[in-house]
């Protein structure tokens, strides 16, 4: 926190760990996307089959749905908190940081709870596909914006 609020004096010391964090955040988001591909991916029918059970199969239990929320809230919550805090001190993101963070916050929350809707009513597989795409796109947009801003600040500091 001190590194963040004492920008730019302490900012240069923070850049290497921030860069490494961004690499791991990217890997976490890629891993999350791969998990989603295993859970129906971008096909509404496959998503419905995953949550509601395919051809007479058992639907996912309430406990399994809450487990997905529990793990997802940690991953999304922590990565979003870190990216949003970094965006807050990035000098070249003034015009877009609020929109990027709020979009990611709304999309990730919707994505966490969309499986309950899919389980409750048939025909809502497309909802989960939409929230997955929006959450993924908004988190990647925030990550790329922070990475580009950090790279520019580093380049300016070296110049």
């Amino acid at each position: 926190m001190r590194w963040l609020v004492q920008q730019p004096a302490a900012g240069s010391r923070a850049r290497p760990p921030v860069a490494l964090f961004l690499v791991f955040a990217a890997l976490a988001l890629a891993g999350l996307a791969a998990q989603r591909l295993q859970a129906g991916g971008l096909s509404p029918a496959d998503v419905e089959a995953f949550y509601r059970g395919a051809e007479g199969g058992e639907p996912l239990t309430a406990a399994a749905l809450w487990e997905e929320v529990h793990v997802g809230a940690f991953v999304y919550g922590f990565v979003l908190f870190m990216l949003a805090a970094l965006a807050a001190v990035a000098p070249r993101l003034e015009g877009v940081r609020g929109g990027l963070v709020l979009a990611a916050f709304a999309a990730t929350l919707a994505d966490l709870f969309a499986p309950f809707a899919v389980s409750a009513r048939p025909g809502l597989g497309a909802l989960r596909v939409a929230t997955t795409v929006l959450a993924s796109a908004s988190m990647w947009a925030l990550l790329v914006a922070v990475a580009v801003a950090q790279a520019r600040v580093g380049r300016d500091a070296r110049a």
Binding site: A73, F74, Y76, G77, F78, L80, F81, A87, A88
Partner: peptide, 11 residues
């Protein structure tokens, strides 16, 4: 840090 902190509180 208002928005990041409030988002973290919500999560």
């Amino acid at each position: 840090f208002r928005v990041p902190a409030l988002a973290f509180a919500a999560f």
